[in-house]
């Protein structure tokens, strides 16, 4: 049972102190990820999805609770977990090949070996002919292909994707999504994608973790039983979309009500909103 559990997010709490004020971001977030699963984390914007992903990546520390990868607590970036960024985060002074090689280079893989791996990945993500191009010469979609190749180069167990398709035009994103799904099926790696795009989540995920508004809790775990490849205009797909939308909508309404409440509180100059709510 625990063997197939690849990643365990256990009661993760995260607080920020912002201008001396305590801001809760995550509130006891708990969920488990199995090997070879495609997970999407979805929630209202600003709810702390990206913070959660950073904690899983070992880039940020939880205030309490823990993330376990293969039974071990993640305290710093793990060599078997890599990440794809919304901003692509390619180094502009490096060519496509050199960017893909970065992770291997940091691990001391010999030059010839990492060149071989990088060339394979260039082909895999369909960038043949652009090996020596600089990022500025590439379109957004091509940049993200490099980002994905760089993440795959180190042969990770888990690929984390932080809004990986959000900065790309919709048409290109559509192509890239289906390619990522193909890669996922071929490579048998675990993917965790953070997104605010409901359709995207439904199209890609085995399971969708729905987070609530700040401080984020796991509001719902939505199992997507649709057969792959999924068709966006399929009636079953649309039904699921509606269901998922309703789950999220109540969350959004909650936000709006809270904003209104806050305005009322400010109007009456009630300093401590938290105690008032209790």
């Amino acid at each position: 049972m625990t063997i197939s559990r690849c990643l365990e997010v256990e009661k993760v709490v995260k607080h920020y102190s912002h201008n001396g004020r305590h801001v809760p971001a995550l509130d006891e977030v708990t969920f488990h990820v199995h090997r070879k699963e495609f997970i999407c984390i979805i929630g209202p914007s600003g709810c702390g999805k990206s913070t959660l992903l950073k904690i899983i990546a070992g880039l940020d520390k939880p205030t309490s609770g823990e993330v376990r990868f293969q039974g071990e607590t993640v305290k710093e970036p793990h060599p078997k977990i890599s990440m794809v960024f919304q901003s692509f985060a390619l180094f502009p002074w490096r060519t496509v090949l050199q960017n893909i090689e970065f992770g291997l280079e940091m691990r001391g893989v010999p030059k010839a070996e990492r060149r071989r791996i990088a060339l394979e990945l260039v082909e895999l993500v369909g960038l043949k002919g652009y090996e020596n191009a600089y990022p500025r010469e590439l379109s957004g979609g091509m940049k993200q292909r490099v980002g994905i190749a760089r993440a795959l180069a180190v042969d990770p167990e888990i690929v984390l994707m932080d809004e990986a398709f959000s900065a790309i035009d919709e048409f290109t994103a559509q192509v890239l999504r289906s390619e990522v799904l193909e890669l996922w099926e071929e490579t048998e790696k675990t993917f965790i994608l953070v997104t605010h795009n409901l359709t995207e989540a439904l199209e890609m995920a085995d399971r969708i973790i729905v987070l609530s508004t700040r401080p984020a809790k796991v509001k719902h775990e939505y199992h997507v039983s649709l057969k792959r490849p999924r068709n966006r205009s399929d009636s079953k797909f649309l039904k699921c979309q509606k269901e998922l939308f309703n789950i999220l909508k109540s969350e959004l309404e909650h936000t709006i009500v809270r904003h209104k409440l806050k305005a009322i509180h400010e109007h009456f100059k009630i300093e401590d909103m938290e105690s008032f709510q209790r």
């Binding site: 950073k54 990546a57 070992g58 880039l59 710093e76 970036p77 060599p79 977990i81 890599s82 990440m83 960024f85 901003s87 985060a89 180094f91 970065f102 992770g103 940091m106 691990r107 760089r150 180190v154």
Partner: peptide, 18 residues
Amino acid sequence: IPKDYFHVAYIYKARKID
């Protein structure tokens, strides 16, 4: 320098000198 550049370096466990 974008924060994400540093995240990339940390993800791949770049040494300080790197």
